[in-house]
Design a protein around this nucleic acid. Sequence first.
DNA 1: CGAATTTTTGATTTATCTCAACAACCGTGG
DNA 2: CCACGGTTGTTGAGATAAATCAAAAATTCG
Lengths: 242, 242
Amino acid sequence: MAIVATVSTGTFLTPLCMSCSVRSASVCSAIKDQDVPRLAGIATVMDVAVGKLLIEAGEQALYFFNVSSGAAKLYRLLPDGRRHIIGFVRSGDFLGLAAGEDYAFSAEALTPLKVCRFTRKKLYDLLSDFPAMERRLLQAASNELAAAQDQMLLLGRKTARERVASFLRSEAAHTPSAQGHSWALLMTRGDMADYLGLTIETVSRTMTALRKCGVIAISTASDVSIEDTAALESIADGTLLN
Amino acid sequence: MAIVATVSTGTFLTPLCMSCSVRSASVCSAIKDQDVPRLAGIATVMDVAVGKLLIEAGEQALYFFNVSSGAAKLYRLLPDGRRHIIGFVRSGDFLGLAAGEDYAFSAEALTPLKVCRFTRKKLYDLLSDFPAMERRLLQAASNELAAAQDQMLLLGRKTARERVASFLRSEAAHTPSAQGHSWALLMTRGDMADYLGLTIETVSRTMTALRKCGVIAISTASDVSIEDTAALESIADGTLLN
DNA sequence: CGAATTTTTGATTTATCTCAACAACCGTGG
DNA sequence: CCACGGTTGTTGAGATAAATCAAAAATTCG
């Protein structure tokens, strides 16, 4: 099911780590240059094609991942097929902290995806020698936890309009090229719906409504821009009522 | 606002730590007996009365807490007063990992509450000498993250009936005395509603419906018992449709 | 005991969902 | 390069789960 192409494994990945474009922004930044070979020694670099699974719910949770490039969606299913997307990961994000014995969620590539895979046990062993990395992981978990609480507030108490506005604000914040310009949404209306606890139709209608009142512009379905940042903010935060 | 009674601070808390009833079940279990004085040295024991705030949203996040006894609800507010309860903490739970610079949530005692308070900075300093405790914190954060994902699925995709059933199952699991018996819910219908993304009326009606079909029994509003565990399970997991 | 709060129940409204049809877009292969 | 089938997105009309409004009942607590 989870078809992936393993590129390579082991210490000879050292040069890849040294030149890794997300190293400084990821948990790996806690490892000093001279120790990188130890990190590279337990890493496997993998490529995942769009639509393929990186993680499948129910599998034994053997690995952690660090995203080098691309993006993925994480989702859970109810027995009758209802789906909920619990989050997205992108360049620099660390993946797998939330898992227990088995993965509770699946992870599917939204774009061509490149990840570094670490065996859980080996990474834990490594952490004993690199407390700075463990501190970074704790920091990452704290940030994720805070984000999860934001999302719970959104799902529990925000209107469709507020949810979509919050989502667009967050996406723009995660997309450097979005500052003042249009950008390409990585996800379909269906993904947005399953992330925001809505239906495709409601997401579509709400996007259209935000466009019609001048808050955003939509050229293609996936190519959007924020036209009125202040208005989007106040809708997202629930300051505006109408 | 957050009126609390500080009982005592410092190394002479050591005997309190040594005899602490939740030590073995909390992150403090990572500290060996001979090192307990160092832990006690940075702790402050506090009592919080029912309805009082332990943490107020917006305050600088200076502290971590470990709950010795009692329970509290954690909540966030939208500007217009909509409230969402992001979770509950009980004996043994560690509190404050999710915070950034400031607390994003408030914490209010549901019962008379006893907590150990640690200054963030001091605890972080201590962690350098006790990697086992840092590992425990990472573990705690992972568990919270997994729970948050469960809750997101609940809020995003479950029906009122499924939400209430999930809540009752989880409460029973957190309450040793609930196994096969009735127990006292710590929270009001309003708290349940704000936790489950529903209204008071919907929670009340749903509880009544679950009682009428024999899944639960309700003697007092707060005194409930599970009469048909299998049915509750399948409702909670979305296996049952009706 | 009695005021205040919480809970339950009923009647009605509404935001969002569902069902349905059509339009736009996308990748593929002729 | 364009036609074509499949997917994704939009829009409309109607249905519905849950919200809102309202009032009575039960419970709590000073």
